[in-house]
Design a protein around this nucleic acid. Structure first.
Lengths: 275, 275
DNA sequence: TAAAACTATGAACGTCATACACAGTACGCC
DNA sequence: GGCGTACTGTGTATGACGTTCATAGTTTTA
């Protein structure tokens, strides 16, 4: 609020840009530009998104976009942020249920817009929409006894899992498009190819498995059970961590015999949030 | 061996290309091209890798490379495969120890060559070196009672974890380079930025945490304990799965009272590998 | 009404991946 | 030993792309 020396795009994105008082009204804004880019990416893939295509779609020349964004990379960041819908409301739900939902929805977003995969860089979010998701994860973990750093780790781990699972589902489902022109478009073809190529001498275990037909049942290669399996794995770990923190907390409370600190485990939480 | 209608690059990569009997000797081969590209990427990042830069480094014109590879994307695939060193030998080691090492080394590879992050697409590997790694994971899981599909899932999950953890470490460590020019190059700066920008009304939990100083201790944001934590989580899950399969197997053995099937749990394994 | 502030445009530049025709080179056969 | 053939590397060209910059046009303030 005081300094406000953000990157220009972010300043625009957060509405910290002073309203222009003179000159012609801007014909565009970040939202319409980003929306246009997303529509193109959804329809033609990321390769179809060029400054030119986006600009002509919103009805201006390509160079006009540089009044709003600094570079194409800026635009990609905006796109990756803008695809996120509103997160569900965590209030009243057990943290585990909520985070499971939270993760699944994020994965589904990526699967619906697979062009975010090349964009996603696992960097801490700076856009308003992804930060909204992060906020909800924090809220869901309120009162669990985790400290704020741990909450961040949990959230980023789950978000990362959503991303990688989406990536696996995507490449397994859409096929290995890079080699699609060579007749490899299913796991079975992949298996045949490996069978041709693997020397049992240097790849003993793998070539045995391939020849036994691992890749015949292509559809079961990746399915929803795999997603739930990994997710439950991670959530089990979080639960374990929470249990440990809870007992730590109890011990500390006993040491400092202070009634206030022994408040309800569920709602108040806040050994950090309180000031 | 019979058909051999692979993509041309793969054919070259696997040595299935007929040796040219006439004309001048090829001045290059895939290995030197790939090595040159990797050196450039290590030194200048992926942006420095162009057909021109690679070609001049190996001493030819840019277009000469197309005698060996079909496109730049081919080259990127080759690079991603070639960075993998020889995997350690799993023989004699417990599967869990080995897979932990297997995963950690893969993460370290990516951290040493972070340009693979934009390349890595989680697709099933086709290069000889990554397949070698997959083979070793298979070997390590031999005798655990997992079926081949499960082994693949385990390996790809762990490989994915190595990748995402490397991504997180990289973006957290090297800083948010995209915004580095705006003075954001540490987690603390990131926290200050969020504090400026977040409205406590719409981001209640997160802004409270930020104002409490979550991002002050930048160095502890991501450390090795985080890696081990997630890894152990996953390996615990695998162990659980193995235990389940082992009991399944035992029940089946009892039903079919066949002495041969009840052989040593550890070494032979192979309800699939044994033809 | 004139100046000021701001917007969109068009031309231009440098880079890049890639296609294609051509020239040079070495082997195999006569 | 010479010729054809198959193959390799080069040069030129092309089209697309991201981005810069000077310019023209437009709206508000003074």
């Amino acid at each position: 609020m005081a300094e406000d020396r953000l990157p220009p795009v972010l300043r625009r994105l957060w509405g910290h840009e002073p309203v222009p008082r003179r000159g012609p009204r801007p014909r565009l804004d970040l939202a319409t530009i980003t929306a246009a880019a997303i529509e193109i990416a959804d329809a033609e893939g990321l390769a179809g998104v060029s400054m030119n295509s986006v600009a002509t779609r919103v009805g201006v020349a390509a160079t006009a976009l540089y009044r709003y964004i600094g570079s194409k990379d800026d635009l990609l960041v905006l796109m990756a942020d803008a695809v996120a819908p509103d997160p569900p409301d965590p209030s009243g739900r057990p943290w585990r249920d909520y985070l499971a939902l939270w993760t699944r929805i994020q994965r589904d977003i990526v699967l619906r817009h697979t062009w975010v995969l090349p964009i996603a860089n696992f960097a801490p979010p700076l856009g308003p929409r992804r930060l909204l998701w992060l906020d909800r994860a924090f809220a869901a973990l309120d009162g669990t006894g985790l400290d704020d750093g741990e909450k961040i780790n949990v959230a980023s781990t789950l978000a990362g899992y959503a991303l990688t699972d989406a990536a696996i589902v995507h490449t397994a489902g859409t096929g290995l498009q890079e080699y699609a022109d060579s007749g490899i478009d299913s796991a079975a073809d992949y298996g045949e190819l490996l069978a041709e190529v693997l020397d049992p001498g240097t790849y003993p275990a793998l070539s045995a498995a391939v020849r036994a037909g691992v890749f015949r049942g292509a559809e079961s290669w990746v399915d929803d059970a795999d997603f739930r399996f990994g997710l439950d794995l991670l959530l089990d770990g979080v639960e374990q961590l929470i249990a440990r923190r809870t007992s730590d907390r109890r011990a500390a409370d006993e040491r400092a015999s202070d009634g206030r600190a022994a408040a309800d485990d569920r709602t108040s939480g806040g050994h950090v949030a309180g000031k």
